[in-house]
Simulated scan of single mutants.
Amino acid sequence: MTFAGTRRRPPTTGDDVPKGPTSADVAREAGVSQSTVSYVMSGKRPISPETRRRVQDAIDRLTYEPHAGARALAGHRTSTVAVVVPVDPDSSVQRLMVFVEEILLAARRRDHDVLLVTADEGPSGLRRVAGRSLCDALVVMGVGADDDRVDVARELPLPVVFIGIPDDAEGLDCLDFDFEAAGGLLVAELADLGHRTVDVLGWGPDVTAQGVNFVPRFERGARTAAAERGVELRWHEPAGEPDVGRVVDGALASDEVPGLVLATAVPATFRALADRGRRPGRDVDVVGLALDAEAEPHGLTATSPRPRDVSRRVMERVFALLDGDAPPGGERELAPAVLLRRRSTRTTPAAG
């Protein structure tokens, strides 16, 4: 496994990106969207002859050429898959590395190496890796809801698979866990135990500020299930363990058995409950989104985001594209959410 950059890189230089006219210039000249230009060049989607002619005429007038290094990829195989996974020094990489480990194992089974790109370079990072003929395919992680890499991904002449679903996913290969179903499943579980009010410990401000795609998907599922079941959701974004304690105190102030949904802060929540002499599964019902390794020590009723399953599906898609067994673009697949009940929830509602 090759590691490329563990520190934030300076902005790319002119040697790293195409000079002269860009695909955005071609789009303006032809009077079409930039994604349409990308589709004409990549062949990923059918385009009408008239639109194709306008785009080609604009390319000819502007003498636009895609990056020479990227064009060369069509005839050169490196037996390498690049994984673009921006790593913030202040964030935990535990969950990310579970994804990466499975990608590495899947690549080795096909005699491929993995190039791990950890610098947060945005679109220029994709261009740099593809333009230098470093890999045969790209796996993109750390996907934002409004991700500025999607237009570049559509344009590149090599397979690109996203782990995550950006808002603008048209023409992209995107695979992920079904976070929306998970949010709904957890709220429904508490509703079935008789809870009419549920406190959700969502992701903190440091995560939500990044605009990651899975946060709004999880919240959408939770709120939809709450509306359908007549449940009031109290949504919290704890910034640290003291905030978690305050949320727990507020939930415990009710005369009824509290219900908690943990999107994060699993250890901190269980510590707070223990400090207050409350036992999950008896004095409070707790469900969460957590890896099995996080859930099992606490007996947490949970749905796992299934990182290994997601990564296996991603690599199956990558090699199907490389082998020519699948058409590029437009594949969207979600690993289903499955609830595993443990001792943090009661088996029946408490008597009223």
Rank of each mutant, 00 (worst) to 15 (best):
V257Q: 14
H236L: 11
A181I: 13
C174E: 05
D255H: 12
G31F: 01
M41G: 02
E219S: 08
R54F: 03
F179E: 13
T303Q: 04
D113Y: 02
P349F: 02
R110K: 07
L321P: 00
A191Y: 09
V98M: 15
L185P: 06
I103H: 10
D285Y: 06
C174K: 02
G144A: 14
D325R: 15
E294C: 07
H195C: 10
V215I: 13
L291T: 04
G324C: 13
P86G: 08
G142A: 13
Y39Q: 12
A326K: 04
P238L: 08
I165W: 03
D16C: 14
D275H: 05
R154L: 15
V129M: 13
P349H: 02
V198S: 06
A293D: 09
A72R: 15
A169G: 12
A295Y: 03
D292Q: 06
A70V: 06
A337T: 09
E241V: 02
S91I: 10
V114P: 00
V143W: 08
A226N: 04
E228F: 05
D309W: 10
R229G: 08
P21K: 07
Y39D: 05
R110D: 01
L134R: 09
V200N: 07
V231K: 05
L252Q: 11
T78P: 01
T197E: 15
Y39F: 14
G75A: 14
R28W: 10
D168F: 03
R149I: 03
D192L: 15
F99N: 12
I163D: 01
E101A: 14
P205K: 08
R306G: 07
G277T: 07
G164A: 00
A188S: 15
P216T: 02
L126C: 11
A293W: 01
G131E: 14
P66L: 02
K19D: 15
K44R: 15
T6M: 10
A27K: 06
T224S: 13
M141Y: 04
E316C: 02
V318P: 00
D283C: 07
P86K: 11
E155H: 12
R95I: 09
A268V: 02
D292K: 04
I47E: 06
R278E: 05
P216V: 02
T63C: 07
F99K: 05
T224E: 14
R28H: 14
